[in-house]
């Protein structure tokens, strides 16, 4: 049970953070961060694929229910979970045995490339599913890129803050 506790805690906190605060943020008329994907990115590497997909689906659905976008976040999250093993194969060398897909275990460079590609996939599919037309293609693309950068920045900030508070405790 102890093993699952951090993930459940992360799930609840990130969903609340996303729904209650981040969903209301809209910077420069284009940046809308989605940080809840951090929960899916940080699921352990040994999670079986099908569990990953199902967790992704229900996480997306939970966000959907709270933001009146039924199906959109679920679709983007499932796509992201589907591509996670593939990205993992290309970005992370196989020889090394990583414990967790976390900032501490992967190092900044690897973590940012791993999380960055996944966040891009998620945001790209989400924004285009939402608008569902090619009108304004480049504007949507700018929104995707700007929001992704902002989301990754927020994720790194959160993880750094957690690290600092852990160091203090020691």
């Amino acid at each position: 049970m102890n093993k699952y506790f951090p993930h459940i805690g992360r799930f609840v906190l990130l969903i609340l953070f996303q729904v209650l605060i981040l969903n209301k943020i809209y910077l420069f008329n284009m940046i809308n961060p989605f940080v809840y994907v951090m929960f899916l990115i940080m699921l352990p590497f040994e999670t079986p694929g099908w569990i990953l997909l199902i967790i992704g689906f229900f996480t997306g659905l939970t966000i959907d229910i709270f933001s009146d976008t039924l199906g959109m976040h679920a679709a983007a999250s499932v796509l992201m979970c589907f591509s996670r093993p593939i990205v993992q194969r290309y970005v992370l060398p196989r020889e090394q045995d990583y414990v967790q897909p976390s900032l501490n275990d992967l190092g900044l460079y690897r973590f940012v490339s791993f999380a960055g590609i996944l966040v891009l996939i998620h945001h790209f599919s989400l924004f285009y599913i939402e608008i569902f037309r090619f009108q304004g293609f480049f504007y949507t693309m700018v929104r995707v890129l700007a929001s992704s950068v902002f989301s990754i920045g927020l994720i790194l900030l959160i993880l750094t803050l957690i690290n600092i508070s852990k160091d203090r405790k020691r």
Binding site: D64, F66, A75
Partner: peptide, 28 residues
């Protein structure tokens, strides 16, 4: 296959939940 299944469920939800007829059980 699970990926395909889940994605089609998602798109069914999106399609059935558009501007005019939105399922009232699962929204705000």
């Amino acid at each position: 296959f699970l990926f395909l299944l889940l994605e089609s469920v998602c798109f069914m939800l999106i399609a059935g939940n558009n501007f005019f007829q939105r399922a009232s059980i699962v929204n705000t």
